[in-house]
Nucleic acid binder design. Sequence first.
DNA 1: GGGATATACTTAACATGTTAAGTGAATGCG
DNA 2: CGCATTCACTTAACATGTTAAGTATATCCC
Lengths: 152, 152
Amino acid sequence: MRDFSRSLPMSLLRAREAVMRQFRPKLREQGLTEQQWRILRALAAIEAAEVTELARTAFLLGPSLSRILRDLEARNLIERKTAKADQRRSMVSISKEGVKLMASVAPSSEAIYAEITRRFGARKLAELQEMLGELEQSLAGLGAGDEASAEE
Amino acid sequence: MRDFSRSLPMSLLRAREAVMRQFRPKLREQGLTEQQWRILRALAAIEAAEVTELARTAFLLGPSLSRILRDLEARNLIERKTAKADQRRSMVSISKEGVKLMASVAPSSEAIYAEITRRFGARKLAELQEMLGELEQSLAGLGAGDEASAEE
DNA sequence: GGGATATACTTAACATGTTAAGTGAATGCG
DNA sequence: CGCATTCACTTAACATGTTAAGTATATCCC
């Protein structure tokens, strides 16, 4: 069998970990996890979003997001209100405190990203992202193996 | 701030998820998680390994590995014995049952990997892996921000 | 209108990720 | 030798990943 440590999943995992390791300490100083930071960033870019939309944007599964939103709300970093038209949906937005917190972390975050870009090379970084996007596209629709054309 | 959904960490995360989504269903059929599968594969390639060595190979943190080994041992998929020379160390190896289980999953796993390779392109896959390795190298030694040259 | 279905979450249960603390066995060294 | 330190794990505690089940509201459609 292939040497699994050279497999694509492991390469992706190690690369991502090498990158995230740069960011985690600064986030941790502010008591934020990587996922919480993703949510705040996603919310900062828009007025408000539904939970499902936010899950798609921040690439989190519903249950994880539910828990994280509960916690972020308790910390007053986000706000929620149920939509008027459809009581099932709730609109989530970042709070003033949330914006302040983001402002305190964003500079470090940007600096780290810049350093990573400098080390790896801006052009190569763009190429890598392009390839990653293509990989994702190649596998889109190949699904989880339990939809169309099931064999049993 | 950058559109975070186009950031390198998100690109890596989405790409890896797109890949892993192909494998998880088959593993699940055998009651294996992705991490358990990594450990079995790592062990299958060698006679025996110390826990620390296995952690490095399977890219798992010690505490995760401790729990997983406990569970795999309970399922008789692996075996452990403490080293004679150093009672702190324990040597882990795959069991006969473990080998059998691997044999039952490996063909599907290989087929899925082949399909991914076919879709994305073998050459591009090699290039991608090369770039991922370089990225990892670029960031090696840039550490977690709390070793040499701490600023405070 | 109203019951079946679908939708938008939330909860539950179990596995792993992550950091800190604990445990027992080796090592360093005065 | 003996005691402090280091080492190789393991446990603990809390957050997220993942799948299944639950809940409340909307929508379909006869």
